[in-house]
Design a binder for these strands. Sequence first.
DNA 1: GACAGCAAAATTTACTTCTG
DNA 2: CAGAAGTAAATTTTGCTGTC
Length: 530
Amino acid sequence: MPPARSSYASELKALAAKKEAAAQKAKAKQKGKNPRPNTDEVDGDPSSKKRKGNPGPATVNRKMPDERNTTQHAEPSSSAGSKPKSPANAKDQPRPTAPAGPSHNVYGSERTGRKAQEEFVKETLSEAAASQERRTSNAFPGAPQGEQGSPAEQAEETQDKSGFEPTSDDHDTDMENESSLDESESDEEEIGYDSAFLDRLKKLYRQQPTKEMKEAILAMLDRLCDAQGDKNSHSKRFNRHVRKSQNDSNWTQDPDFVITDGPRRRDHDRVVLSGYIRVVVDELLKIKNTSRLPPGPPPEVAAPTAVAFYIKWDESQTSEFNTVAARIVAKRVLKDWPTLFDMENVFEMATGHIKYLRACYRRQTIPEVAAKEPERHFSVNSRSRKHTLYQHRLKIIKAIPALSKHGKLIEHLGIDGTSSDEETARKGVYSVRRKKQLSSKVQHLKRWASLDQAYAIHFKGPGSKGNQLRRRVDAGLVSKRRFRITGLPKSCMDPTWLATLTDVQKDLLEFNKELEYDFSFPVELLEIPE
DNA sequence: GACAGCAAAATTTACTTCTG
DNA sequence: CAGAAGTAAATTTTGCTGTC
């Protein structure tokens, strides 16, 4: 499917039906232009790339608000009208091969069928869950049967040749009506909890199909309501993500722990708002994309105005000049959308965006700043590897009930407790930077004999698609980063390191003294299936 | 201002499925 | 059956926002 065009514009259109112009503009802007250097000139040939006519140079795209989360799963909306449902087979096929008792698939060992079985069980349960929920009229999957689909579609049909326009517009308008918006939103919210709960349900299902299962579903709904309520109540601090639970140095090792951590979506309204701020700034500055920012104001300009709009790149975003600029932007946003936002937020966010643009400008024009880029890339890459590693661990724990008891610890350790790595001389091999503060048992649990291993076996075994896992080796590297995770069980800490701490230092780390951590790990999980 | 985090696009890889 | 085409996952890259 088409990488979405600037749909924040269309989102806004949806929110109030004026402002054609801006939407148009945003659309127009999306077309074509400057591809990334390497992609294109190097090899004329790689037309071979299957990525269907990807319109898009990444550089231009601005991210858009809603959108399906993570990656693919194109199926729901796009397929709606136009093409013969391709998705069908992907989902349906596996069925025949897979009798699939709930547990079977996970331990599954099965070559190709494994994933499919897992899918199947998940779906089955989710269907069960759905049927108990009120969402009878679920517009999403079945979509087509609704009324409006066709007329709009036909109307659009005419410009079909332009490729993706119709479908995604369709999609947008779809979003327009309240109910479907809600729907999709809760869908998104659900994802994280969803799979955790479904996995939990899978387990309960085996033990006691009816009663507890129902309770779990209620809990899930509660949770969603809470999330919803929260969101409405504090309109200001929308989206703070507290990764570490503050005052729980007294946790216990729950054998049925349910993982809830994971990326949190940003507040939808804010995302839309910031999208519009970008539109306005780009328009005022008359720029096409941020990789070619215009110079600052000529000396005689005392302050920016809406017609002669500038940002002083060499001044902080809070300088007088740039404050005026932010104010102009904010006023414009409020003029266009008087009812949706308030000055305080908009101004703050406009300032934030100016701050960001300043950073871009400096990178583009100041050699010393540009020179730091490789270092920055190095660290963001490393960081993102940490994230995927952490995700892997959460995923395997979610997938296998017997590992639930380690969920809390892993979640508690969080991203910061995930050791980073560094590419070695050999390409594709990374050496781990161990955290000296953690007991070797923890390292062991996480890596060599356990979670990562289980992940490799159960998700990346023979027949698995996708890139293979990178190889991580222990070359004796030790992390130098400050250790700031509090509330860990003493039994998880490295004794020799502990011995070096003063009492006050120990106080600061608020160890969980009670818990004698049980590191046991079901060895069956490490047997290579088959 | 530095750095963490989220999100999407692009790239790479290894598989499956379709097609000639 | 080979090879093209499609698909999924891991990773990198880019663009932005948020927090300390």
